[in-house]
Computed example of a mutant assay.
Amino acid sequence: MLPASSAFRDFLLTKIINATHATCKSESFVTMATCARQEQLKRLVETFVTLTPLDCSNVRFSFISLVGKKKERLAPQPQAYLHSAGALTWSVTVQDPSRSAAVACQLAISSSLVVLIEEVGRKVVFNCFCRDVIGWSAAHGSFKLFYQRGLCVAFSTRDGRWEDSQEITQRLQLVTQGGTAANMTLRRNRLGQLGFHINSEGVVADVEAHGFAWQAGLRPGCRLVEICLVAVVTLSHEQMIELLRTSRNVTAVVLPPHGDGTPRR
């Protein structure tokens, strides 16, 4: 007796498989199998075949199509290129304050960077991470891009092309957490008050309910990036308050908060 083991099991299975292969190739076994198959087929014919004709005039047969269903062609997504991870470029003009001249540049926006490259000298004149962009304003082809604490870079599309302005805005919406800025004119009440308070970063802390500022769309969490055409990032808290208090006509460029009410920063 051979002891039960994995080696014995493998040996026995190998013997059985080899015996099966040898049987299938043996002429005597093939002849016996053929005769047995013919006898079974003969018995089936004698038992189940009928000579009565079938009336198939009112019978409908549903055949299963073996041809695979034709795949529906997906409609191309409009402006799918705006979702590209690589950089998309537009021809823009940047106003250089140091030279008091307009500089032709290429604006490149990838999924991680915003870059302005001078066309003539191939120099990078501006760059920032997309995560640092907090908002933008666009009007008649002119752009202001706000980043970090409210710093700004301004440029305009060539010939004020509306299509380019729309594409740039859509691209920024896809690759940044920024929002579209709103231009507001803030009125005073009968006491000469604007009806809101801001902190040292220019973020609105609270707004008088249903006052003029509330009606204009100002809400807690909004960030003022410009007050009376002056960049808030260049002002101290005292200067902001003084400008809001003494200006006859108060205008502001305001970035809305995130969906959860937190300010953009």
Rank of each mutant, 00 (worst) to 15 (best):
Q95R: 06
S98W: 10
V103I: 14
A104G: 08
C105N: 03
Q106I: 12
Q106E: 15
A108R: 06
S110L: 11
S110Y: 06
S111F: 01
S112T: 15
L113K: 12
V114L: 13
V114P: 08
I117C: 08
V120P: 03
R122G: 10
R122L: 14
K123A: 13
V125M: 12
V125F: 08
C128N: 12
C128R: 11
I134H: 02
I134C: 02
S137L: 11
A138P: 00
H140T: 10
S142W: 08
L145F: 05
Q148A: 09
L151V: 02
C152M: 14
T157R: 02
D159S: 11
D159E: 15
G160Y: 03
R161C: 12
W162K: 13
E163S: 15
L172F: 05
L172N: 04
T176Q: 06
Q177Y: 06
G178D: 02
G178N: 01
G179M: 04
T180N: 14
T180W: 09
A181G: 12
N183S: 13
N189R: 04
N189A: 04
Q193G: 08
L194S: 04
F196R: 03
I198E: 02
I198G: 00
I198V: 13
S200K: 07
E201C: 09
A205L: 14
A205D: 15
A209R: 15
H210P: 01
F212P: 12
W214S: 14
A216M: 10
L218I: 13
L218D: 03
R219E: 12
G221C: 03
C222K: 00
L224E: 05
V225A: 03
I227D: 05
V230E: 12
V230S: 10
V232L: 03
V232N: 02
